[in-house]
Amino acid sequence: MSWVKNLSILRKASKTGVSLVERIIGDHPGTGGTSGVNYLRSTLDSSFFPELYSMRVQL
């Protein structure tokens, strides 16, 4: 299985995790003083290993 496929699976799992947290805690704040679900949603736009992902076209 290619690493691009693995990153895709990881991104899907992250989205599923955010949905799960939203159902469990709703709009309550997170344990670390974060905004909870809103904070988790903001992390979905982050790339995992951006340098590695950008190299995929060079390989």
Rank of each mutant, 00 (worst) to 15 (best):
S2E: 13
L7C: 10
D27K: 07
V4F: 06
R11T: 05
T16M: 12
G17S: 12
S8P: 00
M55W: 12
S54H: 07
V37F: 01
I9L: 09
M55Y: 11
D27V: 03
S54Y: 03
S8A: 12
V18H: 04
E22S: 15
L40V: 02
L52H: 06
F49A: 14
V37G: 00
S46F: 08
T34V: 02
Y39W: 13
L20V: 15
S14H: 04
L40A: 04
V4T: 10
A13K: 12
V37K: 02
E22P: 02
T16R: 08
G33F: 01
S2M: 08
L59S: 08
R56I: 10
I9D: 09
V57C: 06
T34R: 01
S35M: 11
W3Y: 11
A13C: 06
G32L: 14
A13S: 11
N6F: 06
S8E: 13
G30L: 02
R56A: 15
S47P: 00
S42G: 01
S8K: 08
S14N: 06
T31K: 13
I9H: 05
D45G: 14
L7K: 10
Q58E: 10
S54V: 13
V21F: 07
S47N: 09
S14Y: 04
E22C: 06
G17L: 11
F49S: 08
G17V: 02
I24L: 14
V21D: 00
L40N: 02
A13I: 07
S19H: 10
K12E: 11
V18R: 03
Q58M: 10
V18N: 01
T16V: 08
R56F: 12
Y53T: 13
G30W: 04
Q58L: 14
V4E: 12
S35G: 13
P29N: 10
L10R: 10
D27Q: 09
K15W: 11
G17M: 09
F48T: 14
S2V: 05
S47G: 06
L59C: 07
A13V: 09
A13M: 08
S14W: 03
L7A: 09
F48D: 03
L52N: 04
H28G: 04
K12A: 15
S19T: 09
L44V: 03
S14E: 03
L20E: 06
R11D: 01
L10T: 01
D27M: 04
Y39F: 14
S14G: 05
Y39H: 10
V18L: 04
R11G: 00
G26P: 02
V21S: 04
T16W: 11
G30R: 00
T31R: 12
K12R: 14
K5H: 11
